[in-house]
Nucleic acid binder design. Structure first.
Lengths: 139, 139
DNA sequence: GGCAAAGATGCATCACAGACGCATCTTTAT
DNA sequence: ATAAAGATGCGTCTGTGATGCATCTTTGCC
């Protein structure tokens, strides 16, 4: 039931970028949270592929949000980072369990996933952005 | 976001026991699902500690449900097997993240956990028990 | 009392995933 | 051309879960 730390970093990175008015550097994110530049870079790259972040290489480059914070749904971001997040494999496909064909559990688990996902999709990045004042006190 | 196979086995074991009219043996469960007796025994032991199953040692012993199927909530069983299932550590305690004090994300994640848990607690074992007819065709 | 059935437990091994770091490649402004 | 900054791939380390083996404990039955 846990999220990976990559997902954690991804969410924090987006929260940070949402407070910035101009491009930031991966190194800024890493130093703010005290984590490795390498890991942030990987996470950022996934977010770029997902279309949440726009990156610019070279001198003066950096990263910035590619969408408005109120368009970025947390459920989508989490799925982007976690991949398929089924509680049990049998929810998505026949996993060879002998009772799979008539087992009602998979429907229940599918619904459990759905209610959580729907809630997470009702929350956007804009709902969790810290104020610049708060972030400023950290540095 | 995944459940362990132990939890999977636990749920299947309960579903099976709910169809039985008398004590079954751990070996019966293991052979029905084609899994190791050792693992089932461990899972069963956890369920006994949780009060879901009653076990009897010795000749003629075995296991049986300790509660009525409609009293066994799936959310409780899953928690029993998985332990604390927080999406991120920061939901439960300060994990040292520099923005922990004012981060709104932890509240959102706590709510995401809650909606799923509430749904799972609204479903009982009685809702997912297969018919004896169905199980009979497996053996 | 002894034996055998059945669950309880602990230990060891194995495999896999996630976390983390290093090294290198690619792009681009100046 | 050079240096900045992101993109990527490789390798190691560690923790957890899965699995199996061995042993202990309880208890009914003869």
């Amino acid at each position: 039931m846990k999220l990976t730390t990559q997902t954690d970093y991804a969410l924090r990175t987006l929260m940070f970028l949402a407070t910035q008015t101009r491009r930031a550097k991966v190194a800024d994110v890493a130093s703010l949270f005290g984590i490795s530049v390498n890991h942030v870079a990987k996470v950022v790259n996934l977010l770029v592929r997902g279309g949440y972040i726009r990156s610019t290489r070279g001198i003066g480059g950096g990263i910035e949000l590619a969408q408005s914070p109120d368009e970025i749904r947390l459920g989508d971001v989490i799925e982007q980072m976690e991949g398929d997040l089924h509680l049990l494999a049998c929810v998505q496909a026949d996993d060879g369990c002998v009772i799979h064909s008539f087992c009602k559990l998979k429907g229940v688990l599918a619904q459990a996933e759905r209610v959580q996902r729907e809630y997470l999709d009702s929350v956007t990045l804009a709902d969790v952005v810290p104020t610049r004042r708060q972030l400023g006190q950290v540095k």
